Simulated assay, not measured.
Amino acid sequence: MSLDRPVAPDPYELLPAVGSFTVTSSDVTDGEQLPMSVVHDSAGGKNTSPQLSWSGAPEGTRSYVVTCFDPDAPIPGGFWHWIAVNIPGSTTELPAGAGADDASLPGDAFHVRNDFTTRNFGGAAPPQGDQVHRYYFVVHAVDVDALEVDENTSAAFVNFNLAFHTLARAIVTPTYQH
């Protein structure tokens, strides 16, 4: 089954320009197929968030938000897989599995609800036979210690707040097709 639709634009190119810095991962690679460890268990994977390391954030960075977004989901607004907010500015890495329900995020960081309706990382699970999906793992360098959100805040509202507080973004975009 192919849904024969155009490829969505890079969602971050549609936002006001901000600086950039570097994110790397021992688990995922830009432009390459996700390993099964990062695929949702409903699609035969292990549903584990990847290891992410970052460097070069701009001066003034006081915290980070880490997200994973699939703009290629067959719905108008794409699909949010992970939103971890209020990660301390001294943090430069999240280990694999940091998106688990019982994971201990640094400082006062926490997860908000993703589009699976859970407060954790939800791995890739595109419809079988659909086009290749891109998964934007983004580390947002933020100019405040904490966004004024709580665990029940929607992904849309977190991103609305990020529009006013993001100094720079570091992005790695692996893909997945089931």
Results as ranks from 00 to 15, higher is better:
P126N: 06
T61S: 03
R119W: 01
Y12C: 03
A155E: 01
A156C: 00
T92L: 09
L34W: 09
F121E: 02
V158Q: 05
T166M: 11
D27Y: 03
T61R: 08
A43C: 05
H165I: 04
V144R: 05
K46P: 00
F69Q: 07
V85T: 07
V144Q: 03
G45Y: 09
S37G: 09
G99Y: 03
D102Q: 05
A73M: 04
M1S: 15
T92C: 12
T166P: 07
S53E: 14
Y64N: 05
L94M: 13
T166F: 07
R5F: 00
S63H: 06
H133D: 15
V149E: 13
T48S: 09
R134C: 07
T166C: 11
L162M: 06
A141H: 02
L147D: 08
T22F: 06
P50G: 10
G78C: 04
D10P: 02
G89W: 10
S104C: 00
W82H: 13
D115F: 02
A84Q: 13
G78P: 01
P50E: 14
S26E: 11
V28S: 01
Y176G: 06
V23A: 13
D27G: 02
D145G: 12
A57E: 15
L94G: 12
R62W: 02
N47I: 01
G89E: 12
M36V: 14
R169P: 12
E59I: 08
R113D: 10
M1L: 14
H165Y: 08
P58E: 11
E32K: 15
P71D: 07
Q128H: 14
L15Q: 15
W82G: 01
V149Q: 13
D4F: 12
M1R: 14
N161Q: 15
P50A: 07
D30I: 00
F21C: 13
G99L: 03
G97L: 10
D72N: 11
Y176L: 02
